[in-house]
């Protein structure tokens, strides 16, 4: 696990998930799993966020919203796609209204597997995102533009 000087805040958005992954993301914040021990807080404001956690595949109406939220998060930022729907569209990929995974709209850094994704794997995914965030921060300091 990487060492971080600052506490990364996450922003969660449900692109078109069934809720299963959403409630597991929330479960991560509660006493049993408690991601706050890594200094992570769930925020509702994109301008405060470092890590963008998305559940569910992208549909026609949510793709604009996802893009909008992504643009509002200040760099450096990391995107974590939680659950199989966010990776590929999952069981719903053949539905007429589903475009596919999150990567059809914005670049994704970490994919978390599972249907629904288990809190343990979500935490693993967020911890992996922390080290990517740190790399991006260093790159920014050197003057390189992060991805």
């Amino acid at each position: 696990m990487s060492y971080l000087k600052k506490s990364p805040w996450i922003l969660h958005y449900d692109a078109s998930s069934c809720n299963g992954c959403d409630i597991e993301v929330l479960a991560c914040l509660t006493p049993l799993y408690d991601v706050e021990r890594f200094g992570i807080i769930n925020t509702g404001n994109p301008k405060h966020a470092d890590i963008f956690v998305i559940t569910g595949g992208i549909n026609e109406q949510s793709s604009v919203v996802v893009k909008n939220i992504y643009d509002q998060i200040p760099s450096p930022k990391v995107v974590v796609a939680v659950g199989i729907c966010a990776a590929t569209g999952g069981v719903f990929r053949e539905c007429y209204n589903i475009k596919g995974g999150v990567n059809t709209t914005i670049p994704v850094d970490v994919y978390v597997p599972g249907c629904a994704a288990r809190p343990e794997s979500i935490i693993d995914g967020i911890v992996a995102a922390l080290s990517i965030l740190e790399e991006k921060r260093k790159a920014m300091k050197k003057g390189e533009t992060p991805l």
Binding site: N59, E60, Y96, N97, K99
Partner: peptide, 12 residues
């Protein structure tokens, strides 16, 4: 309900 194709349930 805004969908990609209009009226997705009709004749599809």
């Amino acid at each position: 309900i805004r969908t990609k194709d209009k009226h997705p349930f009709y004749n599809t």
